[in-house]
Amino acid sequence: MSDHFGGPALFLDRSDINTDEIIPAKYLTEISKEALKPYCLEDLSLEGFDHQSEAMAQARVIVTRKNFGCGSSREHAPWVFEVNDIKVVIAESFARIFRQNMYNCGMMAIELAAPELDRLFELAEYGQVHIHIDVNRRQINAETHTKRLTFNFDITPFDMALVNAGGWINFVDTRY
């Protein structure tokens, strides 16, 4: 496990982004994760968003609003992030299956309260935000050239164990 999740952040200022937007169903006929790579967020309806942009290519963390990942149970949604080196999503809340899929893959779906999330979104107005997740301290460090913010987050012992194990399958193997 790396305790250094992080990198440039991509801000998606919308609630209820669904799994069809993250990875359209027509790509579910692929049977390798790598094949999904070019289609990340292809159908996202968000003013000004371009899934082929440089910002998308560089993103390592996604910051978004409520109920992220609602819709289908497709694990292709976390996978398309994984193959694009995005291992963290920060949101006010997540849909159950998406959240569970993230931790099952050893990745992180971090919840932040709305006021803190607002401050994080405001930071983005000062330029490119780099986010570093300090897993052991349960801290999100976000910085631009001129400003720096730190947030604390909670993670359940179970989710932490999944991140440490590198996912649910490894965890299961040591226990059941």
């Binding site: 149970s73 694990e75 299956i97 099952n104 399958i169």
Partner: peptide
């Protein structure tokens, strides 16, 4: 309940889910 592929895989292997 609906689950993702990893939960499904563990279900297939061990018949359990969290």
């Amino acid at each position: 309940a609906g689950v993702g592929t990893t939960d499904l895989e563990v279900g297939i292997m061990k018949g359990i889910c969290s």
